[in-house]
Write a protein that binds this DNA or RNA. Structure first.
Lengths: 201, 201
DNA sequence: TTTAAGTTAGTAAACACTAACTTAAAAGAT
DNA sequence: ATCTTTTAAGTTAGTGTTTACTAACTTAAA
């Protein structure tokens, strides 16, 4: 059996764990299934993780992938005009390219049990919301939109994105999220961008 | 042991099942826990339900409670002016009054496994979306709003509501959903209602 | 007396995990 | 470069508990 250093094996295990959740649902994430997918025996898993909760905490850390990309995106649109449209599009692009991560990001019930999972989840979601609010404040400062509360707008935008993604997931990822999502978002963008124009009159 | 007719016992069992999911999460819904809560032994459960999946299908039927109330609400606002605002408020009122049902309605992953669960879920969600679209078409016909696609608007509104409710749930139902939700929805209503006004100019 | 709901006493399988043993790979010695 | 020792990753062989569920028996209610 080819041995991996614990760093690499941990990544290998979490990669497979995410795949299992994505394809079969959280209930299928057993140590047995995981060991099978990783091609080691069950006890080998415990060489790298203390227990199952430890594994799930590491799965949650995968959400950081998204947050990192989100921050990169935010840096890349500084100075651009339609930051909101770009932000929405970024979400759809990212998720379409990484469907597996939607099985973690949009499945709050997975992380409900355990000692430290709920707190960690709340912290992650709060932090991300903060990022979006800041983007919207930036957009507001550069007059991309006016007269609206940034954080309330964040709720509208994020809620919209979540539902569009959920429908895509429930369809079995059966169509292009980017096309469908951006088509639907025209209405939301219309509302936001034209609200500013109306206020100018 | 006081015996109930199967009709009553089934209701008793599903009531308790919903409570378990709400308080402890889906994972806690074992036949053992359920029997304990109902005050019968495990095999007694099987007098009334074929198997666990049968139980879960019946839990899903509880979503009909909401849809029935939704239809009642729709009937009661016919002819009124701000149907959209009323609709959003209805959601928050209903969920605040029935927090347990949010543990079913907003937990798609629960219903992921099993032979018939995913299809049933999709059917329920599609049907409900259809209802909301119709309400919005009605509102459009009575010029409550203009220039927007009803179904895209439904996505925006439903997505918003879902996220507001999710945050309430994650807070441990720690504040008034009606107050908080309606406060946040002012921005969305502003967008929708003012868009119509802008088009008139 | 009959029926149907409830019980006791299991069943097979799965679950998360441990202890002791094995061995591949890295580190150290020559 | 080669050999030896050490380390850490992987294995076999379990453990105790829980899970969904069944068969046969009991009993409340019609």
């Amino acid at each position: 059996m080819a041995r991996l250093k614990t760093e690499d094996r941990r990544k290998n295990i979490i990669d497979e764990a995410v795949k299992i959740i994505h394809k079969q649902g959280f209930e299928a994430l057993t140590i047995r299934e995981l060991a099978y997918r990783v091609n080691v025996t069950e006890p080998a898993i415990y060489r790298h993780f203390e227990n199952k909760e430890d594994i799930i905490l590491s799965i949650m850390d995968r959400m950081n992938e998204f947050d990192e990309e989100l921050n990169r995106h935010i840096e890349s649109v500084k100075g651009k005009e339609r930051k909101i449209a770009e932000l929405i599009n970024f979400h759809f692009l990212f998720f379409e390219k990484n469907p597996e991560i939607t099985s973690i990001i949009f499945s709050e019930d997975i992380f409900r049990n355990g000692k430290s999972l709920p707190d960690k989840l709340l912290s992650i979601l709060t932090h991300r919301r903060g990022i979006i609010c800041k983007v919207l404040e930036d957009a507001k400062r550069s007059r991309e939109y006016q007269g609206l509360s940034s954080c309330n707008l964040a709720t509208i935008i994020l809620g919209f994105i979540r539902l569009v993604v959920l429908r895509w997931r429930l369809s079995g990822f059966a169509y292009s999220l980017v096309e469908s999502g951006n088509s639907e978002s025209k209405t939301l963008l219309k509302l936001i961008y034209n609200y500013g124009k109306q206020l100018k009159i």
